[in-house]
Amino acid sequence: MEQIIQTLILGLALGGVFALMGSGLSLVFGVMRIVNLAHPSLIIAGAYATYWAFKLWGIDPLVMLPVAAIILAAIGVLLYKLVFEREARSAKYSEMTVLLTFATAMIVEGALGGMFTNTQRVTSPSYATDAIFIGNIFIPTGQLYAGIVSLLIISALALFLKYSRFGNAIRATTQNREAAELLGVNVNLVCIMSFAIGIGLAGAAGSLVSFVFSFFPAKHWEWVAVLMSLVVLGGMGSILGTVIASFMLCVVAAFVGAYVGATWSTMTFFLALFLILLIRPQGLFGEKPELA
């Protein structure tokens, strides 16, 4: 029984981090129909920013988080302006964005590798290796903090999308781009800002990832498929769906890891992706009201 609770806790803690990693991807897809294969590589860029800030100046990753988010958001604006804006009217938009984001992922990986080598890194603030014990059950504080911060950020995002004027414009554009334009929404600005927010979320996720996982430039390939499975299971473009899918899959993966074998744990995500596409391609929450 204790082991079951323990596994559940570890799964939930990771679920929070993955939820944040996936929510930016989901937002960008929802608004712009860009399947951003470069998203995980940008998370790693955020992780490096956090790592060096800690290593060189001793800045705590949680303090660095908003900075990493802003840096990455700025990179997002640049990326959108340089790469995607001109493709927006292209007839082969979807195909183009897959190729362009794939290329972007390779460029980011190459640049990070060139600067920081392929050594495995991990940011190590004191809480990263600590744990809280409740009886015999332990909660790793690093994962706990990361999970809590993730959920706070996602809640803030959800409130922004639901109640602010610009958030409503983003949701409207997601649901009916032409109608939003007809009602006076500057759709191009919505796209730029959503892309910036999405990539900013990658930066924030990177700060958390930097002390939860060890990372190196090519690590993002592992995450692309994992994040895709979360976003597809959640129903593409639905941020609430992505969050719920993250918790579900991370818990299942934790149980598979504990009871079947650690090597099979990652398999859970791929198997889930495969099954969803076969059985319910619109995702679990594809038809339900979206949070976003």
């Binding site: 649901q175 009916n176 032409e178 109608a179 007809l182 009602l183």
Partner: peptide, 30 residues
Amino acid sequence: PDQILRKGICFVPQERALFPKMTVRENLRM
């Protein structure tokens, strides 16, 4: 279109231009 709307011409296209997953009130607000 947004400039023409501000001048006073509204267009409701065939598919009605609603936001299906926003509430009626949110649609009016948009």
